[in-house]
Amino acid sequence: MLDQAVLDALGLNATSTTVSPHGGSGFSSTYKVTSGEKKYFLKTGRDDDARVMFAGEYASLNAINDVDPTLCPRAHAHGSLEATPGSHFLVTDFLDFQSSSGGPSLAQKLAKLHTTPAPSEGKFGFPATTCCGSTPQPNEPYTTSWAQFFAQNRLAFILKQNEAANGSDPGLRTLVERTIEHVVPSLLGKLDGKITPVVVHGDLWSGNASVGSGQAFDPSACYAHSEYELGIMKMFGGFGGQFMKEYHALVPKTEPVEEYEDRVTLYELYHHLNHNALFGGSYRSGAVSIMKRLLATYESEANL
């Protein structure tokens, strides 16, 4: 039986609506809701973490959907369940992963997203906290400096998450602080005033996308530098050289082009640190390796 709060949010009748388990998630229970010809995807979860996650995903999906309604599903509602106090829900369109059959490819849709200015008057941020995995990401206050946003809202924040999850780590803290002090200004400071904020998916790895159908899901959006998207795509792969060639034909690499690979590596660093906070294991060594490599070039450059 579908919770009354979900029925009310969608304007559905219980007698003509069915719900069945569908798919799986490490952070929520997932279902397919059917009412006549209408199909929805439902997520439910407990406690305040689920409330924050679903509110952020709701805002993320609709920010992307406003640019390209074929890239991500439209989110219809989120809120608290009536029958289960302390539990929350999110309802979106149900995706049928079928071939794009001649329509725009995922690379073309991503390019459209990344060439459409965000509705933030040139500022970086987002109107909701979003979650990458289960990590809540602060997206306010808005700022005109992408370097400042990435340094504080991503690297400095995820360092605190690492210490909360894994305990004090002076070596990691020193490397992150040096990266913020030297690498971020050298690589990203020169972009301030020269790049336009766009909506990014924010968690675009192969498990959150269907290249064949040109669709994506589970976003963690913000108004960011377009290349920020590419960090997690590089970390986990799955998109291929032809995808990137098609994408960059529509979204040229930001100048200076010779620093493109290092910028994407810097953005990838955030996801290594996030995964270390979430899962530990080898992700710390990946983060350390990236920081040492970038510091070898840009720490000395910053001190010239």
Rank of each mutant, 00 (worst) to 15 (best):
L10S: 07
T15G: 13
S20V: 15
G23V: 02
S25A: 13
S25K: 01
S29N: 07
T30N: 06
V33L: 13
E37V: 03
E37T: 14
L42G: 02
D48Y: 04
D48I: 08
A55M: 08
E57T: 06
N62D: 11
A63P: 09
I64E: 10
L71A: 10
H76P: 02
H78N: 13
S80V: 07
E82S: 09
P85Y: 08
G86N: 04
Q98V: 10
G103Q: 12
P104N: 03
P104K: 09
K109N: 07
A111S: 08
L113H: 03
T115K: 10
T115W: 08
A118V: 09
E121L: 09
K123F: 03
A128Q: 15
C132Y: 04
T135N: 12
P136K: 06
P138S: 15
Y142K: 07
Y142C: 08
T144M: 07
T144V: 13
S145N: 06
W146L: 08
W146A: 09
F149H: 14
L155G: 05
I158T: 15
Q161V: 12
E163G: 00
A165N: 06
A165Y: 03
G167Q: 02
G167D: 01
L172E: 02
R173G: 01
R173C: 00
E177R: 04
I180M: 15
E181T: 15
E181K: 15
S186H: 10
L187H: 14
L188A: 09
K190P: 10
D192V: 14
V198E: 10
V199R: 08
G212H: 04
G212M: 06
Q215P: 00
D218Y: 02
D218Q: 06
C222D: 07
S226G: 11
E227N: 08
Y228R: 15
Y228P: 05
L230T: 13
G231M: 01
M235I: 00
F236Y: 15
G241A: 14
Q242K: 13
Q242A: 11
H248I: 07
V251L: 09
E258K: 14
H271T: 01
H272D: 05
N274Y: 03
H275A: 04
H275S: 12
N276L: 11
F279R: 03
G281P: 10
G281L: 08
S285I: 04
V288W: 01
R293I: 01
A296P: 00
S300Y: 09
L304G: 10
